[in-house]
């Protein structure tokens, strides 16, 4: 990703708006008793568009702002989301996104990873009480929501950040030589 001041401002706006939208809307609605989690999808999409560094830095920033606004211990969400963004970026750097299904599928898988990560951080900080089996339902349904949200968010961000993206140049196949008189 080519980072100009304009693109940087756009990225900051995306991070702030994403966190505000999550806290004021997505966290407070429940579809089938589960609230969608927009933030991993946002970080994964940015990682897929910009690579490992963009994914990791935006993941860290989103997590930091989230922890600040929720007055949670700082660092937990940052750690999970930076790992999620980094993995998405790593995929972009290693493989080609050749199918429109790849971004939503990655959003689904990595959201599950992020939610498990949040659980791991919480367990690391100490949970000395019962854990309901409904946690599993919550994780799975959140991943399905991520699949649904993944494609529009990925496309929207791609459009918004188009001037900064390093597109793979179209590889033209050399023409077959024409054999005259054959």
């Amino acid at each position: 990703m080519i980072l100009t001041p304009k693109i940087f401002a756009r990225l900051v706006a995306i991070v702030v708006l994403g966190v505000l939208l999550q806290l004021s809307f997505f966290s407070q609605v429940a579809v089938f008793h589960v609230s969608p989690d927009l933030l991993p999808v946002l970080v994964i999409s940015l990682g897929l568009l910009g690579g490992t560094m963009t994914g990791a830095v935006t993941g860290f920033s989103v997590g930091f702002l989230l922890d600040c606004l929720l007055i949670e211990p700082l660092g937990g969400a940052s750690l999970v989301l930076l790992a999620t963004g980094y993995l998405a970026g790593l995929f972009r750097e290693r493989f080609e996104i050749h199918s429109p299904l790849v971004p939503p599928l990655l959003c689904m898988g990595l959201t599950l990873f992020a939610e498990l990560g949040f659980g791991a951080v919480e367990l690391m900080l100490g949970v000395d009480t019962a854990v309901s089996g409904l946690v599993v339902r919550d994780l799975l349904v959140k991943s399905i929501y991520a699949f649904v949200l993944g494609w529009p968010i990925y496309l929207g961000l791609k459009r918004l950040l188009r001037p900064a993206l390093i597109e793979e140049s179209t590889v033209r196949r050399p023409r077959r030589p024409t054999v005259l008189g054959a």
Binding site: T52, I71, G75, G76, S78, L79, L82
Partner: peptide
């Protein structure tokens, strides 16, 4: 940068865990 972010997260977590709002 990646190492810095990871270390930063752990440092923040260690400093702020259990200390309420800063």
């Amino acid at each position: 940068v990646l190492a810095l972010l990871i270390i930063g997260s752990f440092v923040l977590l260690t400093i702020t865990y259990g200390s309420g709002s800063n």
